[in-house]
Each structure stands twice: as structure tokens, then as C-alpha cells.
Write a protein that binds this DNA or RNA. Sequence first.
RNA 1: GUGGCCGUAGCUCAGUUGGUUAGAGCGUCAGAUUGUGGCUCUGAAGGUCGGGGGUUCGAGACCCCUCGGUCACCCCA
Length: 426
Amino acid sequence: MQSSQSFRGMRDILPGEVERRSHFLDTIRTVYSSHGFHEIETPIVDSLEILENSGGGENEKLIFKLLKRGEKLQLTDDTSPDDLVDGGLRFDLTVPLCRFYAENAVRLPKPFRSLQIGQVFRAERPQKGRYRQFLQADIDIIGDSTALSEIELLIASGHALHRLGLESFEVRLNDRRALEQILLKQGVGIDQIIGVMVALDKLDKSSPEQVVKEIIARGVDPGVAESLLEALGRASGQHVVDELANAGAEEAILSNLEEIVSKVRGSIHGMGVRIDPLCVRGLGYYTSTVFEYSSPKWGSSIAGGGRYDSMMSRFGLDQPACGVSLGFERIHAVLAGTEGTAGSSSRRNLYLLFDQTEQLGEALAAAREYRKSGFSVILVSHRHGGRSPMKRLASEAEELRRQGAQGEYWFLQLGTDAEPRLLMHG
RNA sequence: GUGGCCGUAGCUCAGUUGGUUAGAGCGUCAGAUUGUGGCUCUGAAGGUCGGGGGUUCGAGACCCCUCGGUCACCCCA
């Protein structure tokens, strides 16, 4: 007998859980739609040519690749793995979006506000809140180079998180160019910048001493490393911007960040916004502003985004772009155990018990009527006078609720009960 | 990709320093009972002890490999 376990890092989703997830997705769609975003769909598979060298950083190493098919799959002594593959599963929604935009720009509004909800794949080692297939919900604005993009994206995504039921969360905002300028000014070599940024990004987890150590290990002069940390360490309180300017960041970049913060701050209940010069975010395609959402209930980020102005140039288009991605699985995990949020479309289930040999026609007619009045009707064939399925139905409803389903459960014995009777409600 | 911990029935777990036919609760199924169904009682089914190899007279317990889970790195949503 074969194992029925799911493939590594993949998982099944039970009915009650799907009900709950659908409700969350409805909320996301409703909120984003109210902010003017248009939903699109892109393929899960793209050519490797597009997926690779996309600035996806580490993610590019995690691509599930697709074997060529038919005649194109030629095995000889000197074929390398790369000769055998030509496609791959997407590791995010941004790369496919850029291809989509380049292909369809003429038929799209300008600037284009895109919403995409879809599965992405990364061949990582699975962990809690980390799967090899997971759902992301992205909004992006293509064709606007001003801070309006960032402001709209932060407000819309904050709105969505709030409506999903997140009580408190924080956005850390930064502009990579600012950090780069500071590093250069402080004496970090241009080829060391990336390594130093990665090390600095760990400051929220590791001690400053460890980070200094790591920076030195990456080839930076110990004196430079020390003064760098000191300069950035100062830039965390009330006067972040002033300190960053002193440390060598350009005024225009900093005032842009200030503008974003001032417009976003206070707009969403429970959302904190602050400039964090150490927020770096991977090292992918982001060119300037980057932001990351965290919840006190979760160790790592639950959403993130930034500006990727040069990405479209791959396709010969010169278009600025900026986006934010919600990590659906992680948000769902953060919300685990909480009650449904406002507007929860809880369904009213009705178990319609009937004798199949005598009451089938009658039952179908009754089912149609109850559907009209808003019930989700579940036909339960049950021979008259037989053991009542009551207990079984109650425990089934209980199980669905455990999985996350909401709603009421009613039952009605055709020919005996005049009205549906409440079995349980959630 | 690297390292630590874990893997017994559908679920939650017992299982003494290796020693007869591997247990419980919940759930499932069957029957009984109950004048209004979810209670109670009885019984049954269900386990290649994740898989493979090894040590041993004997392994669910010990060793190796492998698969899966989990945590920490790495990186990220």
C-alpha cells in the first residue's frame, strides 16, 4: 500500500479550514477592491529565463524546476541539470506580474493597481509557518514613481490586516539608498555593502557585539564597524532622520520617508509605522523603499514589500513599480484561535433527514425551499425508525468547527418536524 | 543546504534497566436502553510500533541509514 502522506512541505486543507480561509480571502478582496485595485491572475509556471536573474536573490536557488518534455529532453553524457529544464514554479508574485504587465500594458489602466492572490513555491526546508507551497496576496502599483504609491499601498494593506482581525502590528520602513550612502560614507567598501547590510539586518535578533563581529568577519575594518554601529545605534529614537542625515544619508531620500510616515501614521487603528534604517529585506529586486510588517504574535515577518523601479527594464519598459505582499499562511496562523472578524459570512447549515425509499421527491422539494430561504441544505438519507444520526451529525458539526468553520447547524426530520431545529451554533 | 529534538490505533498519549498474544481515553461501527433523538450500558473493528538494515536467544525500546515532523541557523511570507 502506498503512503497517503502529502509531498514534503505540502499540505491538505480540510473543509472547515477552507471555509475560514475563504472568509479571510473575501475580506482581503473587498478591502483591496475598495482601494481601487484590480484583480488579475498569472500562471503558476514561468520560463526559467524569466524566473532566474530576476533579482529574486536567494529565492532563485529555491525554484522547483520543470523537466523538458518529449524530444527536447535529450540525455547525453555531457548534459548538465540545467540542460534538462526549461520552466519553473514561481517563487513570488512580483516576477510574474512584471512579465504580465510588459505583455499586457496596452490594455491596462495607468498607473495600474494590481491585486494578485496566488500560490507560490519555494523548495525550502519546511518549518512552522513555512511551507513549500503557500499563498500570497499582493498589491502593486505600476507606473507611479512618487511616494503616493508607498502611501496607498501601506494604507490599503494596513486596512486589510486590520479588517482581518489583527489587533496590533508594526511596519518598519526604510530606503535602501539611505543605508547604502551611510555605509559608503562610513568607509565600507562598495563590494562589502551587501554583506554588511545582511549583518545589520540581524540587529533585532542578535546583540550589537555579535553583529560587529560578523561585519568584521566580512572584511570590514574593525574601527569602521564600531563607528558604523554607533552611528546607526543613535538613529533609532525620536530624531532618526537627523541622525541619518548626520551619518551621511541624502536629505531628499529622508524627507521622502518622512512624508510617507506622516501620511500613513494614524490612518489605521493598531498599525504602528516607524523608520528603521536597518530594515533591509533580502537583497532582491528592491531599489529604494522597503517595508516589513511584524506582529507581536509572530517571530518573523507577516508581510513585506518595497519599490522595484528597474525590474520592468528587463522587458524593455521603463516603469516604476512598488508592491506589498501579505503572507496569507502566516497571517492565518497569527489569527488562529480568534473569532471571526466583523462581516463574517457564517453559513446556516441544515441537515435534512429523510427516508430515501419513501420521501426522496418530497425531500428534494423541501431542500429547494430551504435553500431559497438561505440555508445550506445537506441531505441525510436515513431509514425511518432507524437509529437516529443525531449524534453523528452533532460530532461532525463539532469537527468542522474545530477546523475553523463558523456558522449554525440545524436539523429537520422530514415528516416529523415542522420547522428546522437548532443543533448547535458557533 | 547545516545542526538539535521527535515519530506507538483516525486523534491525544501509556508502554518500568531490551523479555510472552502492544494498552488507555476520545472518536468510529454494531446492539441494548432511554416516551421526544446529542445521555447511559455492552460489544466490535482498528496498529507493517514511520520505512529499511544491524546488534541480540529475544527490539516499540539499543546502533546505522532513510523518510516525515519540529526547533535553531540560513533566508524569507
